[in-house]
């Protein structure tokens, strides 16, 4: 079973994502901000990281940078949660090494389609 790390400061988003992904047959890890996620990921493997951008302590873009510098997450796919208006954030994320993005609001279908696209079933 593939493992996905969800990073978001909003409990509603985390819970809904977790629900969709579990329904989709994935194992889920959670972090409420970039720092917390990074602490977990340092010695935990994950097949995918889905991260929000605006978070306290360490934001999404910072998290991407850190992960790409790390030894074990150089190639781990990373999806950024954005809203449609945040074109610049998508580009920024890409340039830092993000794999793709999920546009908010999302539903189960959308989330699973994007996840499937980047890590397969």
């Amino acid at each position: 079973m593939k493992t996905i790390m969800i990073v978001d400061d909003s409990r509603t988003v985390r819970e809904s994502l977790k629900f969709f992904l579990k329904e989709g047959g994935y194992n889920v890890l959670e972090g409420s901000d970039g720092r917390e996620a990074l602490d977990i990921l340092v010695n935990t493997e994950a097949d995918l990281v889905i991260t929000d951008v605006n978070m306290p302590n360490l934001d999404g873009l910072g998290l991407i940078e850190e992960l790409r510098k790390s030894a074990n997450h150089k190639f781990t796919p990373i999806l950024v949660l954005t809203t449609e208006s945040q074109q610049s954030i998508m580009e920024k994320g890409k340039s830092l090494g993000a794999t793709g993005w999920i546009v908010k609001p999302f539903d189960s279908e959308k989330v699973l389609a994007v996840v499937k696209k980047v890590i397969g079933e």
């Binding site: 790409r68 150089k74 190639f75 990373i78 890409k94 090494g97 993000a98 793709g100 397969g120």
Partner: peptide, 14 residues
């Protein structure tokens, strides 16, 4: 391409 965590084979599969 691998640096961004993209697996091109998945795209072909799609």
């Amino acid at each position: 391409i691998f640096m961004s965590g993209t697996n091109p084979l998945l795209l072909l599969k799609e």
